[in-house]
């Protein structure tokens, strides 16, 4: 028979990091909304390091210089209902409210999304467009990784075997930054994304001076679209939309799968990105 799975629920982050260092093969489990899916068909883990409601890593707090720090343990319900997130970092709030439905939002955590790093992780394009930094910790200390450098491949990340995700840091956005978010899923709720996009677009004196455009579900990881970001710089809104549309052509190489087609993803991504500019309010 299979030996019983070990289980630890640490009292604080320090204890969690010690267990993580000692047992790098154990499953790091928070809400379980990804790791527990079809659990009876999965390989039984050697151990579970339970981070659900780990003290000290679940809060949403104001960071230095007007930024926001979202603890890795914060759930989608908490993020989706937070007035500060909704006001200043709306793509993340909107993404949170569109993840699964009530049951998934009650259990799913930001840290889980960042850690499992699924190509369809709904919060990930928002983190990318918002220029988030991921704070990780280990017994060796703490470090921050720009989200742009976090994903290293299909479901692989910069997280080391002894590290845990602690928080996402959202920097304040420059005045005149417009934000946008759009998820296109298989249906209107409880849906897996086919394409999603997040945008942070800075407009000064009527022209776009800076833009971060991030897309999800169109590659093996969430991606920024540099071609669009460069093409729109210095353009007025309508012109930026046209330039963005043109720059989207050939910019991504999505795949066909059981949920959608490459051509659909390509086309919708182009429409969404163009609309981010033309639809700015």
């Amino acid at each position: 028979m299979t030996p019983e799975t070990a289980y630890t629920r640490p009292r604080d982050l320090a204890e969690a990091l010690a267990v993580r260092a000692a047992q790098p093969s154990w499953m790091v489990l928070a809400g379980g909304t990804d790791l527990m899916v079809s659990a009876i068909h999965k390989r039984v883990p050697a151990g579970i390091l339970d981070l659900w409601r780990l003290p000290g890593v679940g809060a949403i707090t104001e960071g230095a210089g007007g930024g926001l720090v979202i603890g890795a343990g914060a759930t989608w319900l908490e993020i989706g209902r937070d007035a500060r997130v909704a006001k200043a970092w709306s793509p993340l709030a909107l993404a949170a409210r569109e993840i699964g439905a009530l049951q998934i939002q009650a259990r799913g955590t930001l840290g889980g999304n960042i850690g499992t790093s699924s190509p369809v992780g709904d919060s990930l394009p928002a983190l990318l467009a918002l220029d988030a930094e991921i704070e990780v910790a280990s017994v060796r200390g703490r470090r921050r990784v720009p989200y742009a450098a976090w994903c290293t491949g299909y479901r692989t990340t910069a997280l080391a075997a002894d590290e845990l995700i602690v928080a996402a840091h959202l920097p304040p956005l420059a005045a005149g930054t417009h934000l946008a978010w759009r998820k296109v899923g298989t249906r209107r709720a409880q849906s897996i994304s086919k394409v999603m996009g997040a945008a942070a677009m800075r407009v000064e004196c009527g022209v776009v001076t800076d833009a971060r455009i991030a897309l999800g579900a169109v590659a093996d990881r969430p991606i920024r679209i540099a071609a669009v970001e460069q093409a729109v710089r210095g353009l007025a809104r309508a012109a930026a939309a046209e330039a963005a549309r043109a720059a989207m052509r050939g910019a991504i190489r999505p795949i066909d799968d059981v949920r959608s087609s490459a051509s659909y993803r390509d086309l919708v991504a182009e429409n969404l990105v163009a609309r981010f500019f033309s639809g700015m309010i």
């Binding site: 289980y7 489990l29 379980g32 527990m36 659990a39 579970i48 319900l77 009530l102 049951q103 259990r107």
Partner: peptide, 12 residues
């Protein structure tokens, strides 16, 4: 909070 019991680990 309302959750799906099929994806919650007993230990938790």
């Amino acid at each position: 909070e309302v959750v799906n019991a099929c994806i919650v680990a007993a230990g938790q």
